[in-house]
Design a binder for these strands. Structure first.
Length: 77
DNA sequence: GCGATCGG
DNA sequence: CCGATCGC
């Protein structure tokens, strides 16, 4: 019973976070690549947030020139 | 400096 | 292993 409850909570937390990040993955962002502004979808996104402080969402972008860059694409309360 | 992530 | 990402 307790196990069921806890696993449910864990699953809920994991999925809700995954969904939040996935929303960022769907959208395009203006990113500076090779001295040019390019619209790209992030290859990956995650929350970067110290404990007890506000944080940011970091997007990982693959530029046309092959370079990979990170950019903050969101804020966390 | 903290937070996660991964390319260089 | 470190830089760089952002805001606090």
């Amino acid at each position: 019973m307790l196990f069921m409850f806890i696993s449910h909570c864990v699953a809920y937390l994991l999925t809700s976070m995954a969904v939040n990040v996935q929303q960022y993955l769907g959208k395009e962002y203006e990113v500076e690549c090779d001295g040019q502004m390019v619209k790209l979808k992030p290859v990956k996104a995650w929350v970067l947030q110290p404990k007890g402080r506000k944080g940011v969402v970091i997007g990982l972008f693959k530029c046309p020139n092959g370079k990979t860059i990170r950019k903050a694409i969101g804020k966390i309360e």
